[in-house]
Write a protein that binds this DNA or RNA. Structure first.
Length: 885
RNA sequence: GGGUCGUUAACUCAGAGGUAGAGUGCUUCCUUGACGCGGAAGAAGCCACAAGUUCGAAUCUUGUACGACCCACCA
């Protein structure tokens, strides 16, 4: 029995995928080859958060990496794709706090140590789940090197980097204005704040001038902060206010005497041109406060309630309650001049969407300017390349305007800041090892800083911390700098930028050569997928229903690099159909391989169709390889789709059938088997990075297969297998077949009727071609009697015709033909061709065109005109015949 | 206020200085020995608008409109 006949006619991924993943893993195929004579190819996986499960964005990101990894591995590179997960400080802690809350507990009930144990349990559970999901996707990453941002090695790297930067003076601690999330109870960095426009008001407040009846009117969107005002600013050139500069106002409700000063920051056009200044609760005011030595009065507590500094009347009120109360009191005191509607941007916590409160607070910072400079340079000089290139500017713009990075977080889950304070002498100790005694006073009363580091501080070290840095490991020497970083454009600032400066600063080298940025996965309506909209799609659901190959392929096909992708079930279904098509093509080949023996036929000995499909295969090998090199994965996938479905299945397999079922000689049957097998095998290789499972499954049925497709060599184009002439000739054959099929359809000639066709072609070579390959036309167009000649004395009257540029085709239809219908058909075509002739003639008469256009374009235009002329003549002749009747 | 991307067939999207492409949908036909998750044939587009560059523009340039996103301290 033939190999393929016991295979199901519908492909079932569920039966296949898990099996091969386990096999690959067990065979250690995901590990680097270790062949140091070959160039290395390495990618570190953007570590998913251990907060929950993978979404479609991860699926896309990892599919792209897996395609690149599998492709390079097949090319023979010493390939490493290193997986891992991220502890995701705020996010994970919040999730665990939620689960505690469900039990009626808070983290304080447990205490720091117990709480951390709880998170570690969570990490184990969800970390494993993520590993599982990545496996289901088919990710060929090296699990033996899997890392976690808080494992021992990564933690050591974090500590090393912190101490180094501290010692270099690039990390400092101080009271500065930061963004405070009143819900998460921690400082967050500037980029963790998301701005959203909101409708608010602009309140105009009268501040009385000290020892005067005059008022100064200020405008504010946040009246409650006036309780912390320590000055009023006006523009130095604002003549309305020059006489007031240097004087004082009496702060309403509070009674504090605060100075009026001039600062160029003030915009004269906005509001009243006078700004109330609250250094403790506004970043600009903070800056002005520094410039003018203003006092800083923090009027809020960590949960954004007013504190005692706000005065007894307000202490304990929530910031919004306080706002209402302040307005009420100001109005009562006659200080509220007017209220205007006003739209402005409000900062929200990226994690919990709470409105962020700018606050002065004692925190740790990284000094960014010295780190940013080389990080910009390496990108400008091309040592790191962004793909698509447009993201280079996004990166550089951000880096050029970067501000110091607030890295301390008031959380428990994360890397504890390696700084100790001596309780006796106040010495600050920053150390690689936990200190036991104070180096200056020998006291053992040392207390470690309570805070942990921003999660991104450890993520920033990922490309080298995972390879064993700070030790000089084999992996560091072999795989660093990594080849490419693949990630979404949403974390260019959070992560990519920080890896770049961290890599350069700590290893002296860039962390990766290329950055491949992809877009986001949107829902079918083009919206971002989000929890609040409930429009997310679980990749596992897609895998269960359609298989990982289908998910992978549908996400990347026909997608432009860097652009967003809409997720559509329609497209998934179509891709599932494609998988089924591949499956059945393979089934067909396998079912007909009986008696197969490998033959090495010389190209010139092969029939036209064989030379054609082998030539097309060579072209695909070149194209796909080039497209992969350019990160044009979507286009590469599309070309594979077209080649397999249109050319291999719809043409070559159809042409192979008679040769398999009714071979003219036994040699030809073996030849066609060989070609089918070759094309199928090579196609499976080319497709393997995109659809690893189905291709492996098919490969394992192929005669003479090796241990696994995933360790096969990537196809190399063989120029001697590319016969350009066969491509042209096949084009003609296909055109004739299509023309006859067209006639069949138009005249409702049922499939059963074998028709008679007369074909004339002025070129004897064309006649020869069709005489030699008439079988193609007979088989695919169901022609019973095919005559091919240079010329016939009298064209048949009772016949439908098709006029091609190189031939005329007549289908005699005695008695069946509807003359009126045929005449109108011909006339319609005549009209089209007249239009075409007019267009080409106009071009050819244009002297500028003849003078300036490249010769090949002119030649093409000429032959087009000639062909059109020939066709027109034929049409006229036909019309004449019918009209003479 | 800056910036990026998009605007191509009914829908979702590719493409690209030299006669407009795919998938889905639509129309007609086909139980042809891989596949109806299939095959054959078809209908369907002034490639957003305007100016410019060019022998030639859907493609390049500059504007405009609309949409999406990113950045930004106008209180």
């Amino acid at each position: 029995m033939a190999i393929g006949s016991n295979l199901a006619s519908v492909y079932d991924p569920a039966q296949v995928e898990g099996k091969w993943y386990d096999y690959w893993k067990q065979q250690n195929y995901f590990l680097p080859s270790g062949d140091l004579s070959q160039p290395h190819y390495s990618i570190v996986m953007p570590p998913p958060n251990v907060t929950g499960q993978l979404h479609l964005g991860h699926a896309l990101d990892n599919t792209l990496q897996d395609i690149l990894t599998r492709w390079r591995r097949m090319q023979g590179y010493n390939t490493l794709w290193l997986p891992g997960t991220d502890h995701a400080g705020i996010a994970t802690q919040a999730r665990v706090e939620e689960s505690l809350a469900a039990e009626g507990l808070s983290k304080y009930d447990l205490g720091r140590e117990k709480f951390l144990e709880r998170i570690w349990e969570w990490k184990r559970l969800y970390g494993d789940r993520i590993t599982q999901q990545l496996s289901l996707l088919g990710s060929s990453c090296d699990w033996s090197r899997e890392r976690f941002t808080m494992d021992e090695g990564c933690s050591r790297a974090v500590r090393e980097v912190f101490v180094r930067l501290y010692e270099k003076g690039l990390i400092y601690r101080g009271d500065y204005i930061i963004n405070w999330c009143p819900r998460c109870h921690t400082a967050i960095s500037d980029i963790e704040v998301e701005h959203a426009d909101s409708d608010g008001h602009l309140w105009h407040l009268k501040y009385p001038i000290q020892d005067s009846d005059e008022f100064l009117v200020v405008a504010t969107t946040r009246p409650e902060t006036m309780l912390g005002d320590t000055g009023v600013a006006v523009h130095p050139d604002d003549e309305r206010y020059t006489h007031l500069v240097g004087k004082y106002v009496v702060l309403p409700l509070v009674g504090r005497i605060i100075p009026i000063f001039a600062d160029a920051y003030v915009d004269r056009e906005f509001g009243t041109g006078a700004v109330k200044v609250t250094p403790a609760h506004d970043p600009n005011d903070f800056e002005m406060g520094l410039r003018h030595n203003l006092e800083s009065v923090n009027v809020m507590s960590p949960d954004a309630r007013m504190n005692e500094n706000a005065g007894a009347a307000y202490a304990g009120l929530d910031r919004y309650e306080a706002r209402l109360q302040v307005i009420k009191d100001l109005e009562a005191g006659g200080y509220l001049l007017k209220t205007e509607d006003h739209q402005h941007a409000l900062g929200h916590c990226q994690r919990c969407d709470t409105v962020v409160e700018p606050m002065v607070s004692l925190q740790w910072f990284v000094k960014m300017k010295p780190l940013a400079e080389p990080a910009i340079e390496k990108v400008v000089n091309g040592e790191i390349k962004f793909i698509p290139e447009r993201f280079t500017r996004v990166y550089i713009n951000w880096m050029e305007n970067i501000r110091d990075w607030c890295i301390s977080r008031q959380l428990w889950w994360g890397h504890r800041i390696p700084v100790w304070y001596c309780q006796d002498c106040g010495e600050i100790i920053c150390s690689r090892e936990d200190p036991t005694v104070c180096p200056s006073c020998a006291s053992s009363q040392l207390q470690q800083d309570e805070d942990v580091l921003d999660t991104w501080f450890s993520s920033a070290l990922w490309p080298f911390s995972t390879l064993g840095w700070p030790d000089d490991t084999d992996d560091m020497r072999t795989f660093y700098p990594t080849s490419v970083l693949v990630t979404g454009r949403d974390i260019i600032f959070f992560w990519v930028a920080r890896m770049i400066f961290s890599g350069i600063e700590n290893t002296g080298q860039v962390p990766f050569r290329e950055v491949n940025i992809h877009g986001l996965i949107l829902d079918a309506l083009g919206r971002k997928m989000s929890k609040s909209l409930g429009n997310g799609v679980d990749p596992l659901e897609v895998i269960e229903k359609y298989g990982a190959d289908t998910l992978r392929f549908s996400m990347i096909t026909g997608v432009t690099p860097g652009n967003d992708v809409r997720f559509q079930w329609d497209k998934v279904e179509n891709t599932r159909n494609f998988a089924n098509k591949i499956w059945n093509a393979a089934r067909f080949v396998l079912m007909n391989l009986e008696g197969y023996t490998p033959v090495d036929a010389a190209p010139e000995e092969l029939p036209l169709a064989d030379r054609w499909i082998l030539g097309r295969l060579q072209q695909k090998i070149t194209e796909i390889t080039e497209l992969l090199e350019a990160y044009e994965l979507g286009e590469a996938a599309r070309r594979m789709y077209d080649f397999i479905w249109d050319e291999f299945c719809d043409w070559y397999i159809e042409l192979s059938k008679p040769r398999l079922f009714n071979p003219s000689n036994s040699r030809d049957r073996v030849v066609v088997q060989n070609v089918l097998n070759t094309v199928l095998t090579e196609t499976m290789k080319l497709l393997h990075p995109f659809m690893p499972f189905i291709t492996e499954e098919i490969y394992q049925y192929l005669p003479g297969h090796g241990p696994a497709l995933m360790v096969e060599r990537w196809p190399q184009a063989a120029p001697d297998r590319l016969d350009p002439r066969s491509l042209e000739q096949m084009q003609m054959v296909m055109a004739v077949i299509r023309a006859i099929r067209n006639i069949r359809a138009e005249f409702n000639l049922s499939h059963g009727t074998a028709i008679k066709v007369i074909m004339t072609a002025p070129d004897p070579d064309v006649v020869g071609l069709f005489q030699a390959n008439g079988a193609y036309v007979r088989d695919l167009a169901r022609v019973g009697d095919l005559t091919v000649v240079e010329k016939i004395e009298k064209t048949p009257r009772q016949a439908v015709s098709a006029l091609l540029s190189f031939a005329q085709i007549y289908v005699p239809l005695e008695g069946v033909i509807d003359v009126g219908k045929e005449v109108s058909r011909l006339e319609k075509e005549l009209k089209n061709i007249d239009q075409e002739i007019a267009k080409t003639e106009a071009k050819l008469k244009n002297e500028k065109f003849l003078a300036k256009a490249p010769p090949e374009v002119i030649t093409k235009e000429r032959s087009r005109a000639d062909e059109a002329g020939t066709r027109r003549e034929g049409l006229l002749q036909r019309l004449q015949i019918f009209k003479a009747q």
